[in-house]
Design a protein around this nucleic acid. Structure first.
Length: 479
RNA sequence: GCUCCCGUAGUGUAGUCCGGUCAAUCAUUCCAGCCUUUCGAGCUGGACACCCGGGUUCGAAUCCCGGCGGGAGCACCA
């Protein structure tokens, strides 16, 4: 017997926990969630479930030009499928007035300035550790310019609110950062009502404080943003949540770029966001990958700051653990070849729906005397020879026919190849593979009972059956 | 260039803070055998790692120094 799960397969404890935790997922609704996004969602969920508390879904939709409104619906659906419990959803686009208010306060206490430099000039000065002309202007000047920021005087990139940090900071990534900017692009949720948008370093600091978060998990690409946001917390006397950064994940053989997926769909390379070639959660769901497998994967991976490589094989192994027991078995003959079976009598194969579960019953496949069976071309021995048709009989492959050769299971000991097959009266079936190809063939008719279920096509692999009429269509899961 | 972070088997991970019980854990992977009327499942066995070099120490994956390697950021994206 295996011992109970070792504790090192669990996530490490959080630091500074003083009761319930409040955490958040913070998606940008620019596209659907993919396998990479699922990490932060699941880790947050795991901690909230461990310590009690709540998890927000906070839509970070402060860049009107980069929003795909479909994300407002698909992301909550994906989170729900993952089993991530969201206690409350907030939209940053509902909170622009709040960001303005905090920004003005920063301005008034001398921790921000209204800058009308050209972005390139400002950046150059910053890199040289020098203040731009607007940085130290009087408050009254700042406030006058602040008002004009909102009255339409300035266009895009003509004005911004900059938060002061430390111009002499040795790390150039941490010196003064832009907090508000102008964008004329209509926002999917607020239209043209607002044209001054917060940037993430301001909005995140404000919201993490306002939502009273205790712990924040984010990718390590945000490390310097955390330092920048720390200035905002300090200026306003706010207590900072614990920020934890994890490393980047490189996921091979998966198209995860929203823009590339989007153009691929438009060009017909992919059938949609759930095309089995993609790494989106909707594609994985369609393929029959269980969310519990994804969860186990990320929990075992943990949240170290080192970069890691994602291993599909491992995810598939976890998934197989989950679905093997419930996946009934069926025969699917890929690239079929019809051969007459010369048998002395009618034959009937009784094949268990699941070898480990005889109580589930059998599939009955009948081959009348003089009838034919279909075999996968790849299973036929090149020069003819003996085969066993699984659960039916032994045969000798001889030219265009199969000659009945008894039903003695002893041939297995002799190394005779066991192959799957279907009767003539089979149903057309195809399997969408993850490389975009389609395997066409014939499946035994009983598979129509398995609509929407995961099944194992014997000697082929696990698939999810997504259509059973007029023909069968399956999506490949893994071997 | 500047600032910061990281380096345990093919992959992920435990151990590193508080040096010995680590001839290094677990999972996955791969290989072999057993079992099985699937190339699935199960069982058994096996393979593979502490980035390198110094130093401290009776003793270092663990501490120190130096290399090397990898990564993040330096956006009016998030």
């Amino acid at each position: 017997m295996k011992e109970s799960r070792p504790k090192d397969l669990e996530l490490p404890d959080l630091t500074d926990v003083t009761g319930e935790v409040r955490m958040r997922v913070a998606p940008n609704p620019s596209g659907p969630l993919h396998i990479g996004h699922s990490r932060m969602a699941i880790l947050n969920d795991e901690y909230v479930k461990r310590y009690g508390g709540m998890c927000y879904n906070r839509f970070e939709d402060t860049d009107p030009a980069r929003i795909d409104p479909a994300g407002y619906d698909s992301i909550p659906a994906d989170l729900e499928w993952l089993g991530v419990k969201i206690h409350k959803t907030v939209f940053q686009s509902d909170r622009f007035e709040l960001y303005y208010e905090v920004s003005k306060r920063l301005l008034e206490i001398g921790k921000a300035y209204v800058c009308t430099c050209r972005p390139d000039d400002w950046r150059e000065l910053k890199n040289a550790k020098k203040p731009c002309p607007h940085r130290e202007q009087d408050l009254s000047d700042q406030l006058a310019r602040w008002d004009r920021m909102f009255d339409g005087t300035f266009g895009q990139e003509e004005v911004s609110l900059v938060v002061k940090t430390d111009l002499a900071h040795p790390n150039p990534a941490i010196r003064d950062f832009v907090a508000l900017r102008i964008d004329e692009t209509p926002h999917p949720r607020t239209g043209t009502k607002y044209r001054v948008y917060p940037l993430m370093n301001l909005a995140v600091a404000v919201d993490d404080h306002e939502l009273d978060l205790t712990h924040v998990l984010r990718g390590k690409d945000h490390i310097n943003n955390t330092y920048r946001q720390e200035y905002v917390f300090d200026y306003l006397g706010w207590k900072m949540p614990v920020y934890i950064h994890y490393g980047r994940v490189s996921i091979e053989n998966a198209q995860l770029s929203t823009s590339k997926m989007s153009t691929g769909i438009r060009e017909g390379k992919y059938t949609g966001w759930d095309d089995p070639q993609l790494g989106t959660l909707s594609a994985l769901r369609r393929r029959g990958v269980r969310p519990e497998a994804i969860r186990r994967y990320w929990v075992e991976t943990g949240l170290k700051e080192v970069d890691i490589e994602f291993a599909w094989k491992t995810l598939h192994s976890f998934n197989k653990d989950l679905i093997d027991d419930s996946s009934n078995r069926y025969f699917f003959v890929d690239d079929p070849l019809k051969l007459r079976l010369e048998s002395p009598a009618d034959l009937t194969a009784r094949v268990p729906l699941h070898p480990a579960h005889p109580e589930r019953g059998t599939r009955e496949l009948e081959v009348p005397k003089g009838g034919s069976v279909c075999l996968s071309r790849a299973d036929l021995p090149e020069k003819g020879g003996r085969l066993r048709l699984k659960n039916l009989c032994n045969v000798v492959h001889d030219g265009d026919v199969l000659r009945y050769d008894g039903n003695d299971l002893g041939v297995l000991k002799e190394g005779v190849q066991v192959v799957h097959w279907v009767p003539e009266a089979a149903i057309e079936a195809e399997v969408l593979m993850t490389d975009g190809s389609t395997r066409k063939g014939l499946a035994e008719r009983g598979i129509v009972a398995a609509k929407d279920a995961s099944v194992q096509l014997e000697r082929f692999g696990f698939v999810r059956v997504e259509q059973v009429a007029p023909t069968v269509r399956c999506v490949f899961t893994h071997r």
